[in-house]
């Protein structure tokens, strides 16, 4: 949150953001991947890898938008509700004979509008983002429940189900979409001052205002992007499951936040890499995949995901400090 007041539970900012360098993180992932490939049968097969990537791409698309929001120092808890709601809206539009591609685009428009509400609340009223987006989460998830009730089931067109489950040259369409979104955003961030302004807004809001960063459009834009991309993820999920349920998006709020955190986005704002968030999503999907292959109970998988997120945030907030203290005690031991 750009307002320091709303960070009141955080005693001090910037103690240890990005405690573990990104290259070390990638190294850890590679080592883990090798270890898992050798020990878990079937994990290293092409089919499994592509299924894993398709799974990751849905979370990744949502996480990409969320990365923009978190970089401004905010958060978007409405992601899960928007995914559910837009999936249902897509299906209803398809039932009204709208082509499925157009339906997903209209869904993204709706997600963008919800994002604009979030953005306006944060940018103009300066309210804590976690409360504003919690409110819109309630509205989106509640509307999803409402419109799903008593709706006749719509049979989705084969081409849409193919989009959700098919591959081209072994590569799932969903992965291609996620990569396309990543490339578009990366290019947009690099060729315009957008990236700098996002980071300036999240790093120190008052300074950003003083140096003339248009903080309001930047904030609103980030939330609009997050809402629209969550809707796209909702469309992708609906295509993959070939159905839309009122609560199918719910777990994605936490998964998307987790992907960002594992990817090293600083929850206090000012820091984040889009591609790293995608790697975070792949890491999480891999974890789920391995647990599935090993036959771990779904409840225990939820437990593991919850603990993982808390530990990942803990490492990002206190990690560097602990590493430093550890090194200090080593040095003292050496002197003696």
């Amino acid at each position: 949150m750009p307002s320091d007041r709303s960070d009141s539970l955080v005693a001090s900012r910037r103690q240890g953001a990005a405690a573990i360098p990104i290259l070390v993180r990638i190294g850890i992932v590679v080592v883990l991947l090798l270890a898992v490939s050798l020990s878990v049968p079937y994990f290293a097969s092409v089919d499994n890898a592509m299924g894993l990537l398709a799974q990751a791409s849905i979370v990744a698309v949502a996480a990409l938008g969320l990365t923009l929001v978190i970089t401004t120092g905010g958060i978007d808890l409405s992601v899960g509700g928007v995914i559910s709601l837009s999936g249902l809206v897509d299906v209803i539009l398809i039932g009204a004979h709208v082509p499925w591609g157009v339906a997903i685009l209209i869904g993204m428009l709706l997600g963008g509008v919800i994002g604009a509400v979030n953005g306006a609340l944060v940018a103009f009223l300066r309210v804590p983002a976690f409360v504003a987006t919690f409110g819109t989460l309630g509205i989106a998830a509640g509307l999803a429940l409402f419109i799903a009730n008593g709706r006749r089931t719509t049979v989705l067109p084969d081409s849409m189900i193919e989009f959700g489950n098919g591959t081209v040259l072994q590569l799932p369409y969903l992965v291609i979409v996620a990569v396309a979104v990543l490339i578009v955003l990366e290019v947009a961030l690099r060729v315009t001052p957008w990236s700098m302004r996002l980071r300036a807004t999240g790093d120190n809001f008052r300074v950003a205002v003083l140096v003339g960063v248009p903080t309001r459009p930047i904030l609103i834009g980030a939330y609009v992007a997050s809402g629209a991309l969550a809707s796209l993820a909702g469309g992708m999920l609906t295509a993959q499951l070939s159905t839309a349920g009122p609560q199918q998006g719910e777990p994605y709020t936490l998964s998307a936040i987790a992907a960002c955190v594992v990817g090293g986005v600083d929850l206090m704002g000012g820091r984040g890499r889009l591609w790293a968030s995608c790697l975070g999503a792949i890491f999480l999907a891999g974890l789920g995949n391995v647990m599935n292959l090993e036959g771990v109970q779904p409840f225990i998988q939820d437990l593991a995901t919850g603990v993982l997120i808390v530990v990942a945030v803990l490492l990002s907030t206190r990690g560097r400090e602990w590493v430093a203290r550890f090194g200090e005690s080593f040095r003292k031991a050496g002197l003696r």
Binding site: L9, Q15, F130, L254, F299, I300, G306, V313, T317
Partner: peptide, 24 residues
Amino acid sequence: HYGRIPSFIMTLGMYYVLFAVAQI
């Protein structure tokens, strides 16, 4: 407080952890 995890993440994580423990 001591881990400096924003409360909405900490408690949302706890929400899923407790739900899983209750299920188990």
